[in-house]
Simulated assay, not measured.
Amino acid sequence: MPTGLGRRDFLAAASVALSGGMAGCAGVFAEEGNQVNIAGSSTVFPVTEAIASAFSEKNPTVNLSLSKTGTGGGFGNFFCAGRTDINNASRAIADAETEQCGENGITPIEFQVATDALTVVVNPEADWVDCLTVDELRDIWRAGGAERWSDIDEDWPDEEFELYGAATTSGTFDYFNEAIIGEEENHRSDYHATERDRTIVQGVQGSEYAMGYFGFSYYSENPDSIKALSIDDDGACVEPSIETAMSGEYTPLSRPLFIYVAKESLADPAVRDFARFYMERAATDLVSEVGYVPITEDQRDENLAKLDEAIAEVTE
């Protein structure tokens, strides 16, 4: 890493070379040896970006194309359509997505690469709130629920919420919907929905009455300008952190993060080299440095065994 640059600064510079739109990408059947195309979750993006930067230092001739499309957008528009080799995912692949992949001759292989503490944030000036119960959070984010802070607690400001959250194509939206809203209610639609987590950061920074949610990594970049709320799921307020996600205390918003690799793409040496490098680095501090919990050594070994089996099947 260049002297005088922090990891965040280095990644910001490296992302100019690594990140880009998917238009014109070479796709799954790119010229062998120099191209790996990746889309999907913005939550998983910082992990993949960090690992891709480290890989590029050692493999400068391999072109890595990264794009934030949301988990669902990545599966539906790119990965299962045969246009990318890897999809970042903040939830497991859906049955319909697996079916779409199959129809296009794509076999998705799942690898857990980290654990996230999905984080609810407010403006630092919102000094009336530090913790919400799951029921209170549900009432704020469900359709037909609370409209004003005072609807949750009469001592809180009689001001409308300004809400920022994940777009419906996002795995973060799906996970939050399942964990907080539940099957009997719908996520409200009158909020600022975006795939760009930094847009959520900026929205919450700009309004005393704002609230948003996203992966812990984006909070860890901005701890002085936004405030993370603790969540009370079982009678105790637990703050989001790498430690509480690792211990299992932070419920129900701790969640696994994945990448999916197209088995067919593993015939390409660049894809299989990058996938193996990814599995090895996902068990290191490189993951915690971007704000997530690394996988264990046992998980790493299971991933590598699964990867080697798939590689053997496509290279025999």
Rank of each mutant, 00 (worst) to 15 (best):
M279P: 02
G102R: 05
G144M: 11
G72A: 14
K227A: 00
N77S: 13
R148N: 09
N77A: 08
R272V: 03
S170N: 11
G24Q: 09
I109V: 11
W156G: 07
F55G: 14
A13R: 12
D153C: 08
R188Y: 11
P60W: 03
E208R: 03
A50H: 04
A267E: 08
L18V: 09
R196L: 15
N77E: 09
L11W: 11
G144C: 10
G27A: 10
R272Y: 10
E208M: 03
Q299T: 11
N59F: 07
M1W: 05
A117V: 02
T84S: 10
V62S: 00
A210G: 01
S15R: 15
I180R: 12
V36T: 02
C101V: 09
E239A: 14
A166F: 02
A17W: 14
Q100I: 06
Q112H: 04
P2S: 15
D155L: 07
D273R: 08
S19W: 14
T71M: 14
W128G: 02
I231N: 01
A228V: 04
R83I: 09
Q100H: 02
R255A: 02
Y164E: 00
P252F: 01
L5P: 12
G182K: 10
A167Q: 02
R300M: 05
G72N: 10
S150T: 04
P294H: 01
G105H: 03
Y218Q: 11
I259S: 06
V287H: 04
T133P: 06
G291L: 13
M22Y: 01
I181R: 09
N186S: 14
E309Y: 04
L229N: 01
A262P: 05
E280I: 05
Y209N: 12
R198K: 13
E264R: 04
